[in-house]
């Protein structure tokens, strides 16, 4: 098994250390690339596509034109504005290799599970008893083989594991992951299936089904819900969420994450329009109401 873990590659958008909000304690969060959902409010749009992509941060570009000289597809454009022609760009990385300012970067570097575990292990001294690694994304379970190898590797090294999942994955991967995961941060973006389909592109039925399956296998879970004002900030959703939490044997509680608009500017790095929507940002009172509604069912709110 460990032999295989050396060979399985994972595609990573970012590794963040000293994270305090991705599970208990101090954590290293590994963002894996590729996601089956297309949430309208996506905070990490660079993690949606499974393939490597070229990011252009135009503000950093000093116009040295070195990228033009190395690009095999002629995808670099400087007029009328600085852009990358996404139709011709093959994300080969020649330009990002040459770019002195890191205005051009390839998102989706590949690591073996072992290499990632080495990075994760660097902060072992800070994890204490509760901290550890959190796999996020994107959807970490989408990279089934590699993700499982990484989870196993971390466990072998004695590092506690958490997985932040949208729950929309092959049931067999979920089943295989459960024994290696100390805590699932399970996104339940909406309990209203019509809205779920409309805003994420998929039904929540499979997500809930997987959640129950994981629960029946002994998974410890924390339900996470992004609060998007005017979309899912209603009492029926809170009630359904609380009832779901109550019905699970291994659910430790519910965590609300207020929508913010920062992800929007990230989209521009991919040449997409800024999708940030200020109207979606919940008021403090919305967050308080959501927390109180769920807590009234005797559920711990994080």
């Amino acid at each position: 098994m460990s032999k295989m873990s050396i060979e399985t590659k994972l595609r990573v958008t970012e590794i963040q250390r000293f994270c305090m909000h991705d599970g208990p304690g101090v954590r290293t969060t590994v963002f894996l690339k590729g996601c089956p959902l297309r949430c309208a409010w996506c905070h990490n749009p660079e993690a949606q596509m499974a393939e490597p992509e070229l990011l252009l941060n135009a503000a950093r570009c000093i116009g040295c034109l070195v990228c033009v000289s190395v690009c095999p597809s002629g995808a670099q454009a400087f007029a009328p504005v600085r852009t990358v022609d996404r139709d011709t760009c093959r994300a080969c990385g020649a330009c990002s290799e040459a770019c002195p300012t890191a205005a051009l970067e390839i998102c989706g570097r590949e690591y073996t599970a072992d290499e990632l575990a080495d990075v994760i292990e660097r902060d072992r001294a800070f994890y204490g008893e509760r901290g550890g690694v959190t796999l996020s994304g994107g959807e970490p379970l989408l990279q089934g083989e590699g993700t499982l190898a990484l989870l196993r590797e971390c466990r072998e090294r004695g590092i506690p594991t958490a997985v932040e999942t949208c729950g929309f994955a092959d049931p067999s991967v979920i089943e295989a992951a459960v024994p290696h995961v100390d805590l699932f941060l399970w996104d339940v973006k909406d309990t209203d299936d019509v809205r779920h389909k409309r805003y994420t592109g998929v039904s929540c039925a499979r997500i809930i089904e997987n959640l129950r399956r994981a629960d029946s296998l002994g998974a410890k879970t924390r339900l996470r819900c992004i609060l998007v004002k005017g979309v899912n900030t209603d009492a029926a959703h809170y009630r359904a969420l609380a009832e779901l939490a109550v019905s699970l044997a291994g659910c430790e509680g519910v965590e609300f994450i207020p929508y913010h608009a920062y992800g929007g500017s990230k989209a521009t790095l991919l040449g997409l329009p800024d999708n940030g929507n200020a109207a979606w940002i919940p008021e403090k009172e919305d967050v308080t109401a959501a927390r109180a509604a769920v807590a009234s069912h005797g559920i711990k709110v994080y």
Binding site: M20, V26, A125, F126, Y127, G128, R130, G131
Partner: peptide, 11 residues
């Protein structure tokens, strides 16, 4: 935040 500070000191 407290946990973070304690973790930094312990580490």
């Amino acid at each position: 935040g407290l946990e973070a500070l304690i973790a930094l000191i312990r580490g």
